[in-house]
Computed example of a mutant assay.
Amino acid sequence: MTEIKKIRILIADDHSLIRVGVASVVSMQEDMELVGEADDGHGAVDEYRRLRPDVALIDLQMPRMSGLEAIIRIRQEFPTSRLIVLTTYAGDVQALQALKAGAAGYLLKSTLRHELLNVIRGVHEGGFHVPPEIANDIGMNAVREMLTDRELEVLLAVSRGLPNKGVARELGITEETVKAHVKSIFAKLGVADRTEAVTVAARRGIIDLTPGSGPKL
């Protein structure tokens, strides 16, 4: 009887429950085996280098080094690596960044039970996977310009509740210039007010509203 060649999998996620869950699901598959785990970006790179897995699942938000940076480093060293982003974030900008960095798949943790195994097998065979709703957002927003560095600064200041005068003071520009940037931001994001701008930008992954975080572009 021919022995089944197993897909060797590495998972990098700072949440132990996710790692345990993936390990449990993978352990029940005849054609898969979990060969390693990491709880931060540095560990992901080190373990990939040591184990050379067939497929690596990498969380975007991890301590010490982000999943995006880990993907970039792994792809630089191992151009043929097959990497799948594992994340809670459905933002199309983050997905696009990960895909540009070399990820072959983008998997939302909320869909793990339904899609994990099929996505692993598909990516291992050379395919790509992006959730339809994120792919649609990427396509819908591709024609819109990305925000400039200054617009990102303005948007981040706005997200902290600063009025135009406060934004102008913080960035060392005039209030009229701030108004012009805000108008441009509204047009690019397709929104009508400041609250909606911040909400849409956070959902798409353009800005990160977690404490101590900056723009994601």
Rank of each mutant, 00 (worst) to 15 (best):
I4K: 12
K6H: 10
K6T: 05
R8E: 12
I11C: 07
D13F: 09
D14W: 03
H15V: 12
I18W: 12
G21Q: 14
V22R: 05
A23S: 15
S24Y: 13
V26Y: 03
E30M: 06
D31M: 03
D31A: 09
E33I: 13
V35Y: 00
G36Y: 06
D39P: 00
D39T: 12
G41W: 09
E47Q: 15
R50V: 10
L51Y: 03
P53F: 07
D54A: 09
A56Y: 07
A56F: 12
I58S: 02
M62Q: 07
G67R: 01
A70D: 06
I72N: 02
I74T: 02
R75Y: 04
R75E: 13
E77S: 15
T88D: 01
Y89F: 14
D92S: 12
D92V: 10
A95G: 01
L96T: 08
A98E: 07
A101K: 03
A101S: 12
A104T: 13
A104P: 02
K109P: 01
S110E: 15
S110P: 05
T111V: 12
R113F: 11
L116Q: 08
G122N: 15
V123Q: 00
G127Y: 11
A135S: 14
D137F: 04
N141W: 08
E145S: 12
L147M: 07
L147R: 04
L152D: 09
L152G: 12
E153G: 04
S159Y: 06
R160L: 06
G161Y: 02
K165Y: 02
V167S: 00
V167T: 02
A168S: 02
A168G: 01
E170V: 11
L171Y: 03
T174N: 11
T174L: 06
E176W: 11
S184E: 12
F186C: 07
D193S: 08
D193E: 06
L209H: 04
L209C: 09
P211R: 02
G212T: 10
G212K: 03
G214C: 14
G214K: 13
P215T: 14
K216M: 14
